[in-house]
Design a binder for these strands. Structure first.
Lengths: 213, 213
DNA sequence: CATCAAGCGGAGCGGCCGCTCCTGTTGTAC
DNA sequence: GTACAACAGGAGCGGCCGCTCCGCTTGATG
């Protein structure tokens, strides 16, 4: 994975050196295996790839789910930090928003576990999602202030859109690499204020189909 | 499911009446169970719900995958037939396209197996996908002729978009019912010719981010 | 009613996978 | 070097699940 693994650098201080090394190896291997195979992989595969026995793995992580959560959270936090820095470094609000999506879809194109987590309840921990929401909301606000984002678009809309597009990236990754950029382009154009009238403010009161006309 | 089950009405003529009844019961139960639980359900659950033993089930369908494929194909074909009729009955090309998406997302919002099939290779049989492509292409052509669809949008774009939005519908079905209409609206607006400039014609030669500006 | 093949049911087999247990090993403190 | 607690490892347990096997039942036929 391109997502760097470095958050909470020294989790437990009073541990033996080899144990610490093994823990790191497990996290790294698990990150790779989960990314390429999804959360359904056999735990033995992770143990094998990290050069560690089952007992060792389960002493460090009491449960497979907990291991997955840990890995996901580390990757996601690292990615979020990176995304945040890019966002503040980009002056043009629209470019910042577009770059966010671009980076999101580009980096997690190969990470099955991350994309799967969008579908399941919870996924990464609530705090991760909260941070992500905060970032998206900041990007959105900048765009709104600049008048480039279509009025009525909510943070939740953008979050859902990112999840939806991530799915598309994953399913088309090997059959049509790069095709997701077209979908992203279409969606972004649908979000632009120069292109469309305001979105209804949350209400799905109107039962009419979502046509533009 | 709202998707009616009626295609290839009498599959095997020389069979005993009870066998025919059981086969129908299995298909119906499997359709419901797959829809609400996804393709990963225990086969025993399907047997239980259809009031049939394991042996019976496996005599009618040599494999779980084959059962799933049969069910998916029936549902999908029935849905496609319906979608086709609606399409030809709608004069306005844009309304026809929008209605297609609306119907697709509305009816399969609760069908896990169908949505999952978008992600896996194959999914429904190739002929189903071909028919679906044909329908989408027809809708697209009508819109292009009427000048309401943004130039450069391919049939594949629309197909991928439908799959992507389907995922979003499923993941937000119970947490935010109806929210998918907002995403659909955004996407449709991104597809409208009055809202955006032509899409690049297939080439992802440009490495630039997909921003509108 | 008799006959019998077609059909039925569900216990059970084999494989997978999450997790544990216990024996052997190794880092660390003195 | 010695002693000990922390750690490593992997065989194995239990549960799940796809699929099969075989004795019993039942609808069709004359």
């Amino acid at each position: 994975m391109t997502l760097a693994e470095h958050a909470t650098p020294a989790p437990r201080p009073g541990r033996r050196a080899d144990a610490e090394r093994n823990r790191a190896a497990i996290i790294e291997a698990a990150g790779a295996v989960f990314a390429e195979c999804g959360g359904g992989v056999d735990v033995r595969e992770i143990a094998r790839r990290s050069g560690v026995g089952m007992g060792t793995l389960y002493r460090h992580f009491p449960t497979k789910d907990e291991l997955l959560a840990t890995v996901l959270e580390r990757q996601f936090n690292a990615w979020l930090t990176d995304a945040y820095q890019r966002a503040v470094a980009t002056e043009d609000p629209w470019q910042a928003l577009a770059g966010f999506f671009e980076q999101l879809l580009g980096t997690q194109a190969g990470n099955r576990a991350v994309v799967e987590s969008y579908a399941s309840t919870g996924g990464p921990s609530a705090s991760c999602i909260q941070r992500c929401y905060a970032l998206i909301d900041q990007l959105r606000t900048r765009c709104v202030d600049a008048g480039v984002l279509r009025p009525g678009v909510t943070t939740e809309d953008l979050f859902l859109l990112s999840g939806s597009l991530s799915q598309a990236v994953l399913t088309t990754a090997e059959s049509h690499p790069g095709q997701w950029r077209r979908l992203l382009r279409i969606s972004l154009d649908g979000l632009s204020s120069r292109n469309a009238e305001p979105l209804p403010v949350r209400g799905m009161g109107a039962d009419t189909p979502a046509s533009t006309d």
